[in-house]
Amino acid sequence: MACDDRPLLSARGLTRYYGRILGCRDVNFDIWPGEVLGIVGESGSGKTTVLKCISARLEPSAGTVTYDTRTEGPVDIHRISEPARRLLMRTDWGFVHQDPRDGLRMAVSAGANIGERLMAVGARHYGQIRETATNWLGKVEMDTGRMDDLPCTFSGGMQQRLQIARNLVTAPRIVFMDEPTGGLDVSVQARLLDLLRGLVSDLGLAAVVVTHDLAVTRLLSHRLLVMRHGTVVETGLTDQVLDDPQHPYTQLLVSSVLHP
């Protein structure tokens, strides 16, 4: 059984090669229930590879990813059966893509997008599905009157809110986010970050946020992993890492970005 005195998700010796090219090597970390972990680094640093490996979207070349399931306790997500893995992916986990079009069904309405995960796990009452979808539109601060509109009629920021609602509707315990505010303009980004911070703390969600934007992690994450050339160069509490970076690369990263 899952419990609060052990990590929700643990990566041990996580290594992934693409042919001869290194994706990431010997990455180790734990995520505790309700904790938000930021992974930062420049593009090509391996942060997205790590995210894909821990969310079962990519099989690692070596190492394990252990997840503390509600019913079975800790399991290696790359060893369990595909049905069990897919069930985790559509109930206990969420995945927010940078491009909302990768995470939404563009040909069906906002309501159906939110309701899909409910129907996938057996919800069969149209009225209740709709009511839940309406609530979630409200929670992500969208106009509930747009329930039956197609995602393509929404702005980029609204699509991203819809994607978040679609993921949270089954009350996942952990959400993986890949540059969730990338591609949005600054004012939209700020409001979305506010929303995310509120949701994560209200729902007690654990999250892994991959970003190249230190401002995003400063706002969202409790702890930080700094990656470079496929390996973790520094780790610690977010404020500690950003205010007192130890590794020369982190120092460079912080000094280049965080000048007020």
Partner: peptide
Amino acid sequence: ALQEYGVMHVRLYEDIAR
């Protein structure tokens, strides 16, 4: 194989919504 049939209900949902 995995009984992933939720998407079929999504289609029926859309019918009712529309």
